[in-house]
Design a protein around this nucleic acid. Structure first.
Length: 830
DNA sequence: GAGCACTGC
């Protein structure tokens, strides 16, 4: 099996090298031809000639790098079952490779250029202008079959002449007053001509699925139309968004269009910021915020219309919302429900909402040519870099956006790109490389929004952040290697991991669309048309099916939903995930034997946190350290992005971090120390820099902390503080996390007590070299090993003191022959 | 002795 795989990889490698050599040869022949015929070139032709030479040079540099290819692509690492690990991408590439001799022969992003070259060689005559026109025809012919679905979209959706006219109209109206101008602009949106039809449809049906691509104006216009039609007399109109910035900016825009002050008639509501008032009739909010609102108003009584926007994104919150609003619609016939989505899932939504009719609104987007590779690319990083360079020297002006899976790849690509363009000086245009990913410090992120100087080209290297969360103007070329990192959750072990996965067709379409926002564009897909057609899933697995549902289950329980396993989910999560979440809630004492919420459970549900964190906070009351625990909860829920660890200063960063671990107090206590020290510096940014701490994360922790502190009152917890009683703080943590206990084994690894399995302390932990006998951990992650992240040492006696229903004396005795507890006592609280 | 896709409450 493995030797075969190796051999196959060798073949892929040889094949790609061979192809490269052929390309070079072809170029060389062409070059000689110029000289041989002694043709005088015009300035423009010379420029093209220079470009070609540069391409050649770049290709040669690429070929040198190929020598390291084999080792780079074929690491000798296997997973626990002995299968080849990590290189799932390789396996995928291999699958694609099978098809090389098949129908894909003509799918090559540079077929354009090759066709042109063949043509040139044949004619042995130089006619650049004519050749350019010709190559376009060739190219279109070659790719015709592959663009059917996007092409259909483009032809129907949008006509460039219309657009120009509309733009001219907008310009004309610029002379009118700002308000009048806005009103004119509203009328140019594609949705405008469907206004009456749409209102009629909403009037006729309780639930309507609205399909409209970005740019159709649905998010800003529909609530206004409904207001104009009088719906706001019966209650406010709500519109949910998956992201905070979207909710804010859309609300601001609509307030402007209606000529009212933001926060009055039009407002938005997001976490940490409620910009609404009694007057608010159009309310934009994040989907998570609406979920929270459900707790206080389970029938949405104050709303006459609820619009769930961007439903196709299928965030965890939208999926939960679907189940809830569908239920409400049954006993509130006066409530109108609008589900709005970009094209792909409309039928599915319609079926789910009892065959609700679908209303189509065309979008406004420029056409994007889709180009596929001829043969599969075994090394997409290299392929992406080469494609960037090729675009840079052969394609007209316009910025480039490349999708990578993470920071590491982005940094690698940046380095290679810099190395290959180094020393070319003025022979190629300036290339501005902009990396962008969520953990990049904000000042460096801002770089992508700077306008590209005349004559230069911006190359944005991005993670999935550029797929939905931010849009960059001026992008004309998208390079899509076809992978992303996806979270997956194993309910059996309770472990989370990030896995590099092929993207879905829907995601690929979204990525391609990024090239056509401001002008027609091109999308270079680094996989074959065949594999796009036959191997990629239609849609990404919705988040609800690959995440821990602890807090979702707690929230649904507090809404009084008894039978969660049969709850009407659009796509039900795995039963095991639900069962594990329920089990955990039992163990924590949030549910009684009948599966109903206990008083403790109701208090826990008040916090927008994982059940274990909530339990920890509620328990802190007893140990008189709520101040400290709230800080720890806030720091833990910010995630693992607190410590900044740049590649070139890892030692400094590690030293700085270890300062907070003095006394081997454990990671959670260290986080507390980080926060308190920061607070003492009066929340100094400078201090963060000096200690290699992410300012953004700390500010977030402060926001969360403030919110949690505000909620203490609601669950009747008196603020209390015991900053020097580490034991009390650790006991409070254990009250939430006794479920996550692990015991040291002879070989230095740990064994978890619940679901016995071998785990290790994460090397970033302050206790990684201390190895206490008993630990409680915050979470389990799989990377190169199974790691416990954020651990503290505990005394086993605490377990019996804190969770007597869960641990018996023999469970925590240290005799190594003792069998570890298995499925010990169900919850017997209350 | 390691690796942090992206949101959201």
């Amino acid at each position: 099996m493995l030797p075969a795989l190796r051999e196959a990889s060798r073949q892929v490698y040889l094949r790609s090298r061979e192809q490269k050599k052929l390309d070079e040869l072809q170029d060389a022949i062409l070059d000689e031809q110029y000289l041989f015929e002694g043709i005088e070139l015009t300035a423009k032709e010379k420029e093209e000639f220079r470009y070609k030479r540069t391409v050649l040079e770049l290709a040669k540099r690429g070929a040198e790098d190929l020598d390291s290819f084999e080792e780079y692509r074929m690491p000798e690492s296997y997973d626990r079952e002995g299968k080849v690990k990590q290189d799932r991408r390789f396996a995928v590439a291999l699958e694609r490779y099978k098809d090389v001799d098949g129908e894909n022969e003509k799918m090559n992003p540079f077929a354009e250029q090759e066709a042109w070259e063949e043509h040139q060689i044949g004619k042995a005559k130089l006619q650049f202008g004519a050749a350019n026109r010709k190559k376009k025809d060739d190219y279109e012919y070659v790719f015709e079959d592959q663009i059917d679905f996007v092409k259909a979209d483009l032809l129907e959706g949008f006509n460039e002449d219309d657009m120009e006219m509309e733009e001219a109209e907008i310009k004309k109206s610029a002379e009118k007053s700002a308000f009048m101008q806005l009103q004119e602009e509203r009328k140019t949106l594609p949705i405008y001509r469907y206004r009456d039809e749409l209102l009629q449809a909403i009037d006729d049906h309780q639930v309507l699925v609205i399909v409209g691509e970005t740019g159709s104006g649905k998010t800003t216009q529909i609530p206004q139309y409904l207001h104009e039609a009088g719906y706001t007399k019966k209650g406010r109109i709500g519109c949910t968004q998956p992201r905070r910035v979207a909710a804010m900016s859309v609300a601001a825009r609509v307030a402007q269009e209606l000529g009212v002050k933001l926060g009055h008639e039009v407002g938005y509501s997001i976490r940490f910021e409620d910009c609404t008032s009694d007057k608010t009739i159009l309310k934009y909010m994040t989907d998570g915020m609406l979920l929270r609102e459900f707790l206080g108003e389970p029938d949405l009584a104050s709303y006459s219309v609820m619009m769930v926007d961007e439903a196709h994104e299928r965030t965890l919150s939208t999926d939960v919302l679907f189940g809830l609003v569908k239920d409400i619609a049954r006993f509130r016939p006066d409530l109108k429900l609008l589900i709005s989505s970009a094209t792909l899932d409309a039928d599915k939504f319609s079926d789910y909402f009892d065959k609700a009719p679908i209303f189509n609104i065309p979008g406004r987007r420029y056409p994007v040519d889709l180009l596929y590779t001829k043969a599969p690319e075994a090394d997409y990083l290299e392929a992406a870099v080469v494609t960037v360079l090729q675009i840079h020297v052969t394609q007209p002006a316009g910025d480039v956006l490349v999708f990578f899976t993470g920071q590491e790849e982005i940094e690698a690509a940046e380095e290679i790109l810099k190395a290959r363009t180094r020393g070319l000086g003025s022979r190629i245009a300036e290339m501005i490389i902009c990396p962008i990913y969520a953990n990049l410090p904000s000042d460096l992120q801002a770089k992508i929004f700077e306008e590209t100087p005349e004559g230069a080209r911006k190359v944005v290297l991005a993670t999935n952040i550029a797929e939905t969360s931010l849009t960059i103007d001026g992008i004309k070329y998208v390079i899509d290697p076809g992978f992303c990192k996806q979270k997956s959750y194993n309910p059996r072990t309770g472990m989370e991991s990030l896995i590099v996965t092929p993207i879905s067709k829907a995601a690929a379409q979204q990525r391609a669309g990024r090239a056509g926002r401001t002008s027609p564009g091109k999308c270079f897909r680094l996989y074959t048309a065949w594999s796009h057609q036959h191997e990629m899933e239609d849609n990404t697995v919705p988040e609800i099916q690959r995440t821990n549902l602890g807090n979702v289950v707690l929230m649904l329980k507090s809404l009084g939903i008894v039978d969660l396993v049969h709850f009407d989910f659009l796509d039900p999560p795995p039963a095991e995930t639900l069962i594990r979440a329920l089990e955990q809630l039992y163990a924590l004492g949030a549910l009684n034997d009948h599966g109903e919420l206990t008083k403790l459970g109701r208090r826990m549900a008040e916090f927008p946190l994982d059940p274990m964190l909530s339990k920890m906070i509620v328990a802190s009351d007893k140990f008189k350290c709520s101040e400290e625990i709230v800080t720890i909860a806030a720091m833990l829920s910010v995630g693992n992005s607190i410590f900044y660890r740049p590649k070139d200063k890892q030692v400094h960063a590690d030293n700085a971090r270890m300062n907070f671990h003095t006394g081997n107090v454990g990671d959670q206590i260290a986080l507390l120390k980080v926060y308190d020290t920061w607070k003492e510096t009066n929340y100094s940014t400078q201090w963060c820099y000096e200690n290699y701490i992410q300012v953004r994360s700390m500010k977030r922790a402060r926001d969360i902390r403030d919110q949690l502190e505000g909620l203490l009152d609601r669950v009747e917890i008196e603020p209390s503080s015991s900053p020097n009683d580490i034991e009390a703080i650790k006991k409070a943590i254990t009250s939430g996390y006794f479920y996550h206990t692990a015991k040291l084994q002879k070989n230095g690894s740990y064994r978890t007590v619940k679901n016995p399995q071998t785990v290790h302390i994460h090397p970033s932990s302050g206790l990684a070299e201390v190895l206490p006998r008993w630990v409680v951990y915050f979470e389990l992650v799989i990377t190169t090993k199974e790691y416990m992240r954020q651990v503290i040492e505990i005394k086993p006696d605490w377990l019996i003191e804190i969770a007597p229903h869960y641990y018996k004396k023999q469970d925590v005795e240290d005799a190594s022959s003792q069998k570890l507890p298995k499925g010990t006592g169900r919850a017997v609280m209350d």
